[in-house]
């Protein structure tokens, strides 16, 4: 009786599995929705000569199997959130498209994936733009109410949110838990806006207090959560949705603490 032969995984299949895992993990870490992760990884594997690529996605990990000539190779990776970065997502997707057009082989894909350095805007630029964004939100809020434009409301909103954004980026660079980060920075933003209310600098304190914390609304996770669930990825959708609600709650804690300290209950 012959011993059943155990087929080994060829080296190139192992390498392609690794590349697929690397690409998928990079997408997941930088805030791509589940449908995109799955389609990019599958197409990358097929472009590099696999017969099938099967992918299981979780919020904090990814497991994938490549299949060729009846030989399966499976690998799992742990996911650590690196923050939303559309530049990294775009680069991974373009690598996949190049592989699909046969302009890159496995070695080329590996080189390109390794070369991706997620691009970040300078912190002060982001803070200034986010400050302006919240000031624009304040103006939109005033229009919705039919109130007069008040320059000092915008200035106060701008200062409060720009300072809070700077603090948020600084705390994030020190690797604080995002929940702690959001609570502390929401406290800072509300405290600055509350000074305007206390000293009577502005005509519409309520608008300034509410607009300066709008930079904390986790819009991207919320939209990703719903689109995941609409497309059938209920698991990751729920994880993302719960995380987004927790971030909002953390901000609320910061806002309530600030309103208690300064005794300015203008929200409700």
């Amino acid at each position: 009786m012959s011993v059943p032969q155990i087929t080994g995984v060829a080296d190139d299949q192992r390498e392609i599995t690794r590349l697929c895992a690397q690409a998928g993990l990079m997408l997941l870490q930088h805030g791509a929705e589940s449908a995109l992760v799955e389609s990019v990884v599958r197409r990358l594997g097929l472009a590099l000569g696999m017969e099938a690529v099967e992918l299981v996605l979780l919020a904090n990990g990814i497991t994938l199997t490549t299949i060729r000539d009846g030989v399966c190779h499976t690998t799992a990776r742990r996911n650590l959130d690196r923050g939303i970065n559309m530049h990294a997502v775009t680069e991974v997707q373009r690598t996949m498209l190049l592989a699909e057009e046969k302009q890159l082989d496995a070695a080329g894909v590996a080189r390109r994936l390794d070369e991706i350095k997620p691009f970040r805007y300078p912190r002060w630029q982001v803070s200034v733009m986010v400050g302006l964004s919240c000031a624009a939100f304040a103006r939109l809020g005033l229009i919705a109410r039919g109130a007069e434009a008040d320059v000092w409301t915008f200035v106060l909103t701008f200062v409060a949110s720009a300072v809070a954004m700077q603090a948020r980026q600084w705390l994030a660079s020190l690797h604080f838990n995002p929940l702690v980060n959001f609570a502390v920075t929401a406290f800072i933003a509300t405290s600055i806006a509350a000074q305007g209310v206390i000293h009577g600098w502005v005509d519409s304190p309520k608008i300034a207090m509410s607009a300066c914390v709008l930079l904390f609304v986790p819009g991207f996770p919320f939209i990703n959560a719903v689109s995941d669930m609409v497309k059938g990825y209920i698991n990751t959708g729920i994880s993302r949705g719960v995380m987004a609600v927790l971030l909002l709650l953390a901000c609320c804690a910061g806002i309530v603490l600030a309103m208690t300290v300064w005794n300015t209950w203008t929200w409700l």
Partner: peptide, 13 residues
């Protein structure tokens, strides 16, 4: 304005 501001938070190229 907020579209650009938040696009920068998301590190859009």
């Amino acid at each position: 304005v907020p579209a650009v501001g938040f696009a920068m938070i998301f590190n859009v190229p």
